[in-house]
Amino acid sequence: MTLIRRILLRLLTTAITLFGVAVIVFFVIRVVPGNPVAMMLPPGATDDDIARLKALYGLDKTIPEQFLIWLGGVLHGDFGTSITTRQPVLSLVLSRLPATIELSIMALVIAMIIGGALALTGTRKRGTKVEGTIDVTNGVALSVPDFLWGLVLILLFGVLWPIFHISGRISPSIDLPFSTNFYLFESVLRLRFDIWADLVSHMFMPSLALAIPLAAIIAQLLKQSLKETMHLDYVTLARTKGYDENHVITREALPNAVLPTLTLIGVQFTFLIGGTVIIERLFSYEGLGNMAIDAVINRDLPLIQGIVILFALIFTAVNLVVDLTYAALNPRLRNG
């Protein structure tokens, strides 16, 4: 199978997956007991109110009809109108997306730095107590999910030793001169490092909470691959040439050991993005996940649908990129 055919096939399954997600969200909200209109109106609404609202949102039609209308809109970039804010779902969702992207990427970078450092230290000090400590720490970090790490961090660095902000994305007192919602990104471009520092001090705790489990996974896998690589002949050769241990690990072993870890990071990154939902809630961070929970609590059906589809789109896109990169990097798969 050629690479092109592989890509086309992969795109097709991605499309099927997204369609499946759309169908499931759409029907779950409507088929399971409790009709959507009852969910939208405050208790005590009259039958007349219900009928009017149903007609307004096209809910007087059958569910398959509604789905087709909604799908037609989506294909034209119209995700409907949010019930609570009366704004287009697409613009609402896009206004929050940058906050979540920045948080996820910051978490990913932190995870790679911590995980990489632990793996290198563990390899350098292999067989000593340091390696044992790293292994035990990894085990704990892996078993406890981001939600609990978030709470632990809030206690440690929000209360016990309050050096970071534990709520919000930016201090309300700051005037934002920005034209996009990528605050962190734009603050660097505009050289506003005062704002950058404030953003980082808000984002560090939630992104660290997201990063801890991933850092442990990275540390574990990278250390294992490094260990295997260190036994290969060319590494021994480098050592007999007189290079010191640090050089051997970082320059000789690392480049060959890093590929499986990179693949794993790609897959795990989607789990990290999924984790932003509750972490944003925990840290009152104004991103997509926090908006999603509000939408569910307010029974804002069009908004819920829009956000779930967007998350599914991000997940499948990340997986697609990982698969294709892997196929492109791995010669055995290229013509296989």
């Binding site: 997204l18 499931i24 993005i273 999924g274 939902v277 509750i278 996940g289 929970i293 569910v296 956000i307």
Partner: peptide, 11 residues
């Protein structure tokens, strides 16, 4: 796998 699990459960 394309659903964010926490959001799915809340939903």
């Amino acid at each position: 796998m394309a659903f964010p699990p926490v959001l799915f459960s809340i939903l």
